[in-house]
Design a protein around this nucleic acid. Structure first.
Lengths: 194, 194, 194, 194
DNA sequence: AATGAATGAGAGTTCATTCAT
DNA sequence: AATGAATGAACTCTCATTCAT
């Protein structure tokens, strides 16, 4: 993951192509041509096409986990923390839209070992978020009549679906959408007030 | 798309393999072996590998559209119709889980012409559902402070995400999950009672 | 190992090229060009370049083992049997000279699994021949002052070296050389008459 | 071919790898890694991978020829000289076992020019040894009923085969094996006494 | 209706070697 | 003396599809 002009250009080209055409449909030849380098140069920095794919997963997993840790570390009322996480993950996902597109579409193209690593790191994220929800439930502010896995899937689903409908050039701004989706999610999981 | 033992076996094998390995990673050879037929026989019924993929899209689009039409035709209070649609689409998606898995992962593998057809038919579904939401908003029972596209994306997202987390052999039954997700969705979009 | 015009032509071309240039230096492209077939056709019959190499080992191992079994089965005075084996293995090795050339030069290019199989089958041959020598020693007609492994290596070495010096178009005929080498070998291992 | 720490380490690594994996299967990268130097450093001392291979041939040819010359120069009864050559060549070959392994397996990987040089120098050795045998035949102590090329091939074969069966860690010591093989060879070529 | 041999283009990857530094 | 990035050609192998039978 060194940063050199060649490695950067290759990674950027790979990301764009994987997002628009899919991993399997993109040839190494296309990548190096788009990056303006030779195949040999690319293989000097990356051991395989799979390396390029994994770099995308690594970037998104690393970033999202760090953001989650930071928000949780800041503390506050549990519901406020959950809302902050929700807003942040939507905004970050919009910033990393091409990565997100690849993320959910191409997981089965990773080598088994790397697929396992991705799964493990996703579970870490999942467990940390689930703990937040459990705490809110213990505090009596989040409903318990729906199984927690369903609540959490309901959270992930919005993030997941972003790359299928949201366009940065569309009418809704990133900030607005993040706030709106967070609102919809919070409304659905909190206990009714009166 | 006639129904013959050979064609059926091929389609079934293709569906299973596409869902578990992805379209691009599955070879025609694997499909015909899994189906217990020869390549020649397969190419007698299907013109290309792409035909097999499209058949999956066709089946799911046809079914879901028909269900939507039926439920809308039955009439009733708008919110009840929306809830019925929501419950039904979750249940149907669980019944067609392999198809759903392929649906969201492999759309970019279709030939451009067929990709357009799929997009067109999805838009038909989308427009019909959006009309329901618009009616509910006009009736004052669904909130208008969130843009309608966001509300609708919020609906689709749960359906979309199902194949990534739900397991028929897990603790939640199809019926329960459908009801729970419908409830979460409805709660988030309806106007507060007071 | 089916016999078709394509498979035969490929095997023959591979044998010639492997013998003259070595396995690693011969490309699949060269083989199919020499055989007058396409790469696809070749890969229809053989799963890998390694298959072609192994076919050579298989042929020579199968043949030599069958000949040894037959000669031993015919029975006779032990020394006569040993001499017959010796004559026959030289003649057979001359008939299979290209195979022999490849045999000793390219064993380390086989996949580990196949290398093991070759080693196992060579050991079978070795053990059967060693039993003959042991019997002759027990009968007092073969010397025991030299360790049996050395006697046997001394036998194999002539066979092994054939492809490095013998030319079918040279002055010595196959039959003559076989008889002469058998004579040299027998003279060196038998006990002196007095 | 200067002697520097780098050049020595490279040559040693190359020898080990060529002997265990074969020349073609060994990459320059593997060699420099095993030697603990960089590619650039290696190419500073050697012009090509072929240089490394030829160095092995050069060492063994030079040594064996010098030993033969020395032994012949010492003089003595012809049969004693032949026996001394035979003992010495076996011992030397055991000392240079990795070189010997490479020698017989990789001759066809040398560039044509160097292959010719190796062939020429082998012939020099061959001719000198053949002259010894001819002298012994003229003296009536070596049989003439077997063509001289066959006698000589019978000599070379044992040397050649050593790397295929002898293990320095096995039961037979270098000295013993050398004496035993010399004995077998001499017994086979000398005229019967009584 | 069905076979399976054959095609030919293109896939990912390796590698000895060069060269600016 | 030594680095290591970069080259470019060649490598083995795969695959959707065709076609004579």
């Amino acid at each position: 993951m060194k940063t050199t002009p060649v490695a950067d250009a290759v990674l950027k080209a790979a990301l764009d192509l994987f997002a628009s055409q899919g991993y399997a449909t993109t040839s190494v030849q296309q990548i190096v041509e788009a990056a303006g380098v030779t195949k040999g140069a690319m293989y000097h920095y990356f051991q395989s096409k799979d390396d390029l794919l994994f770099a995308i997963y690594d970037r998104i997993l690393t970033l999202q986990k760090r953001r989650l840790d930071e928000i949780v570390a800041q503390g506050g009322a549990t519901l406020d923390v959950i809302r902050a996480v929700c807003v942040d993950v939507v905004e970050t996902s919009i910033d990393l839209m091409p990565e997100g597109t690849v993320f959910f579409r191409s997981m089965h193209m990773l080598t088994p070992a790397r697929n396992q690593e991705v799964t493990r790191r996703r579970r870490e994220y999942h467990d940390e978020f689930a703990a937040l929800v459990a705490r809110a439930q213990a505090e009596g502010v989040v409903r318990t009549d729906v199984p927690r896995p369903v609540l959490i899937a309901h959270f992930y689903s919005d993030v997941h679906y972003l790359s299928y409908w949201y366009s940065p050039s569309g009418p809704e701004s990133k900030t607005e959408v993040a706030s709106q989706l967070a609102d919809l999610f919070l409304r659905s999981i909190t206990v009714e007030d009166g």
